[in-house]
Structure formats: C-alpha cells, structure tokens
Design a protein around this nucleic acid. Sequence first.
DNA 1: GTCTATAAGATGATAGAC
DNA 2: GTCTATCATCTTATAGAC
Lengths: 214, 214
Amino acid sequence: MTDTRTKLLDAAADALREHEAAQASARTIAGRAGVNQALIFYHFGTVSELIEAACHRAVDEAADHYREQFDRVTSLPGLLDVGRELHQRERSVGNVAMMAHLMSGAGNDPILASAARYAMSRWNAEIEPVVARVLRDSPLAEITDSAGLACAVSASFIGLELYEGVDPEGAANALDSLERLGVLVDVFDDLGPIARRALRSKLKAVRATEPRRA
Amino acid sequence: MTDTRTKLLDAAADALREHEAAQASARTIAGRAGVNQALIFYHFGTVSELIEAACHRAVDEAADHYREQFDRVTSLPGLLDVGRELHQRERSVGNVAMMAHLMSGAGNDPILASAARYAMSRWNAEIEPVVARVLRDSPLAEITDSAGLACAVSASFIGLELYEGVDPEGAANALDSLERLGVLVDVFDDLGPIARRALRSKLKAVRATEPRRA
DNA sequence: GTCTATAAGATGATAGAC
DNA sequence: GTCTATCATCTTATAGAC
C-alpha cells in the first residue's frame, strides 16, 4: 500500500500543509517522497493533478473523521465545541493551511480551482445539516439560513488560518472573541418569548428600511 | 509624477489585484508597466520589495479613504453600513484579493510577510477604536474586546474573498447570513436591562463550566 | 536612468534506456 | 514502473554600454 502513488500523495499533501505551497514543485515533492521526479507525470499527468488528488484524499479523510461527531451534535454550544476541536486538530495537522493555499492558487490554475471547490463543498455538506438541526428550534432560524452560515463559517476558518501565519497573537484574540460572541446566541435561546418578539419586530423594521439587494 | 517608480508600483498592485499573483514576476510586472525588467531591481532591489511597496501604498490609500467615514460611525448598524460599502468597494477595486495573495505568500517570503503584517495592523488600527466606541454602551462590551473583534472581522474578510474566487454564490450567501446575524446584536442593545441581566448570568455560568485556555 | 545581454538556476514535461 | 538525460521555458538578478 505504500507504493509510489501514495508516497507522492503524502509528499504533495505535506508540501501544501507546511509553509511552502509556492515551492510545491515537481522536484521538491518527488524529493520529499524519495522517488524520481518523472514519476509524477507518469502517475498523475501534471503536478496540479497530483495536488488535486492529494487534497481530495485529505478532505475526504478529515470529513469522514468528523462525521459521527457532527451527528451527535444537538445544541449550538455542542456545535461550537466540535468546531473548536476540529479547528485545532485540522490546524495542527495542517489541513486548513492546505485549503488556504489551494484557494489562493485557484485563480491561476483551473485544476486547483476545482480541487478547492470540491473541498469547500464537501465541508459545507457536513456542516450545513448540523447547523440546520441546531437552529431549528431557535428564534435565530428566522433570520439566517443554514447554508449561508455554513459557508460563512468555512470562509472564516480559512481567513483565520491565513491571518495566523501573519499575526499569531491577533488570530488567537480573534478566535477568542468569536467564541465569546457565541454565548450571545446561547443567551438568545434561553430568553424565550420576550426576545423572540423583540427579534421579530426588529426584523420587520430592518427589512422595511433596508431592502435586500438584488 | 507618472515616473517609472509609480508605473511599476501601479503595475505590481494590478498584478496582485487580478487573478494572477503567482504570475507576479519581474517580467510580467515590467511588461504591464511598459518599462524594462531590469528597472525593477534598480529601483526596488528585489521583486518582493516592489510588491511590498505597492501593498504599503495601496493599504495606506484605502485606510485614509475610510478614516473620516469611520470617525462618523456612532452605532453598530452604522458600522455595518460602512463595512458593507468598504467591502464592496475594496473588492471591486481588488484590494482584498491583493491582501489575500499577500498573506498566502507570506509563508514563503519574509518580505511579503512583513507587508502583510503592516497591512493587517493598519486596518486593525482603523477598525479597533470604532468597534470600541460603538460597543462602549452595549452589554456586548462585557463579553468581547474590541481588538479581538477587529482582528476577527479583518480575517473573515480575507477568507470570504478567497472563498468568493472558488464559489461566488456561496460567498454571497455567507455574506448575507453574516449581515442578518448583525441584527441580532442590534436587538440586544434595544432589549436593555432584561437582556443585560440574562447575559451576565449566562456569562457567569459559561465561565464557571468552561475555563478559558492559557 | 534606461537599455541590452546574459548569467545561473528552477520549472514542467518528455524521450528513451532498462 | 522506474530511471537518466534532456528540452524549452521561465525565473531572479547582474554587468556594462549608452
């Protein structure tokens, strides 16, 4: 099972996970895998296709790993707990960095773009039903759609990862702030009918004065 | 004023603003500027230093442009309004893409990293006092610090930009969801003492069961 | 300041021996 | 399947004429 193909897939994923990304060239990846550079083209055709395959495998593994944890989530605090664990694990493993570099390079390379699209859609497919289930009984269900929220969460993860590479301390502060803001949602659910009524009337006012675009 | 230096700065910024980024090489930038490739090294030393200078200029211009608008903000809805305008303008101009590519390349190149650090700190310096002023009289001031929130907002902007390059529709949905979530904060301010009390007790409970890390 | 020419090296990819 | 050797092209950067 540790044949050349998987060696190359591992090496490509590692290259993207670490600082490099721009240095994810055929020669460096092959060197990392301990195999000849020409084998990349024999097995995968192009470097981009190797990277695509590596990311495909990585995101599938990660999503599968969290599936049952997601299934057990029934409350928003519970979702935040899984999210925090997921963020820390994926970050330490380097998968978030991989995604960030993938999306950043998507502008130049259509193959990388399709890989990025697959990765994001895969994560959203996991997150979206959980968000929907958790918000179903909350007054928040009336102001947000779960699909949009899932996208927002994914995008923010990516942004925080990039930000962390530039200013680790600031990124940690940002994450703390977001977590504390999550308490706000929690309080809302506990407030019950009073908040629900206030929210409804407020929403009406906002929708009247500021019609949504397009 | 349209000398070679500024021509090169313009061309470098444009290269980063558009799809390319990876193709922001000395030759392509010089070609875009309509000058000889060797002049980049004469005027800036290295390609990275040219890019750094271009980003420095771009973020200074943009931040100055919004300074007085930020100063006029007194409420959270007002802040969201400016944020929405800022996001759309900076996006259409391409500055957010520039930042994203800058941060993505920061891992490889220490000069790009310092440019990214400057850009983020510059924006945070503008946003942070506004957030602090707006939240001062809100019960939310007790659960979030303005510095962390400012970082979170900046990072999320970056992430959304990258996400938009991969899935434009999803990014639009995400932005809509976040905007609608902003109404939630608005409602909180209007609820007054009831919410304030509920929030305080909830915070106590959360802090007791789940001590913050490090 | 601006140009040409060029060094010195990395890149993706292929041909062909084994 | 794997290797060596190689192509054509791109890269940053410099030397030196003007």
